[in-house]
């Protein structure tokens, strides 16, 4: 009896310890959602608090109010009326269909990819993950190139091209199967990686001294020229994206690099520790949202 009780205690103890690694991240995620929901509860009514420089007429006419957590999967199209209408028209004939087909062809013709990622839908949902053996975060982009290298093949460009197309195929499969973002933090090392990613996201950097959060948390919903800034929650769920500005499909790493350049910094490498941990943090913030990728953005 004592042995059974001891075993049960160990089990309960280890379970609570395991759950604890997610605790901070979960707290952050819920607080971020609560904040966004508050910002978009009634933009015109709260204009002096969240949108002090936006004319009231614009807030009344251009913003959708009462946005809830699941709506954020659409990014800024969740609350920006005009852009949402344009987006809905764009996805009638999405520009990324050829990329999905090409990604499927690449996947089916490459033995290495089939071996490494036997289920394309699950491949999307598995990453980013914390590799307990290597003690590092592995993103989907890094996993694809690691797979190619381990099979004696040349790695692909991590920002666009074949890799983005394969990711588009994986994402489309995940979307079709109704999979949701489900990032786990299984250990202390993983929690440390998450915390570094979190710190990177909120730290001001570059000659403009901006942080990711300046635009996507404190600046969420505000307009920069004709575009509306998107929330951090939901961002990773729709990648890879076909950006009209690029006129092609690109990976999440490419988009983040663009942000870093806009902040006045030389972007870190797509497979660098900083980039991986930033994606780990960002992905956790989208936990529970369905995969929407590939998608189209301005």
């Amino acid at each position: 009896m004592k042995k059974v009780l001891a075993c049960a205690a160990i089990l309960v103890g280890s379970f609570s310890l395991a759950a604890n690694y997610n605790a901070q991240a979960e707290k952050d995620r819920l607080a971020l959602i609560k904040y966004y929901e508050k910002v978009f509860a009634d933009p015109a009514g709260k204009s002096s608090v969240y949108f002090p420089y936006t004319p009231e007429k614009e807030l009344k006419e251009n913003y959708i109010k009462g946005i809830k957590w699941k709506d954020f999967v659409l990014g800024s199209y969740a609350y920006a009326k005009g852009p949402k209408e344009q987006y809905l028209e764009m996805i009638d004939f999405p520009p990324y269909l050829d990329n999905i087909d090409h990604g499927e062809e690449l996947y089916n013709s490459n033995k290495a990819l089939k071996e490494c990622f036997p289920d394309p839908a699950k491949a999307r949902a598995k990453y980013p993950m914390f590799d307990q053996k290597k003690k590092e975060v592995v993103t989907l982009t890094v996993a694809i190139n690691d797979c190619l290298k381990s099979h004696g093949q040349k790695p692909w460009n991590m920002k666009k091209g074949d890799l983005a197309d394969v990711e588009a195929y994986f994402a489309a499969q995940a979307k079709e199967n109704g999979l949701k973002v489900n990032v786990q933090i299984p250990s202390k090392e993983a929690e440390d990686a998450y915390m570094r990613g979190r710190k990177y996201y909120y730290s001001q950097r570059g000659y403009l001294k901006l942080s990711c959060a300046n635009c996507h948390v404190q600046g969420v919903g505000k307009r920069t020229r004709r575009d509306y800034l998107s929330p951090a929650v939901g961002q990773v769920a729709h990648f890879p994206v076909y950006r009209l500005a690029w006129q092609e499909l690109g990976t999440l790493e490419r988009r983040i690099s663009g942000c870093l350049v806009n902040m006045g910094q030389k972007p870190v490498a797509p497979d660098s520790k900083q980039m991986r941990e930033l994606i780990y943090f960002l992905s956790y913030m989208s936990n529970g949202l369905p995969y929407q990728g590939p998608d189209v953005r301005k």
Binding site: K27, D28, L30, A31, L32, K34, Y35, R198, K199, Y202, S203, Q204, S211, A213, N214, V217, Q218
Partner: peptide, 9 residues
């Protein structure tokens, strides 16, 4: 300064 930008912190 970074924690002053985190909702929930």
């Amino acid at each position: 300064s970074y924690r002053y930008a985190i909702p929930g912190d």
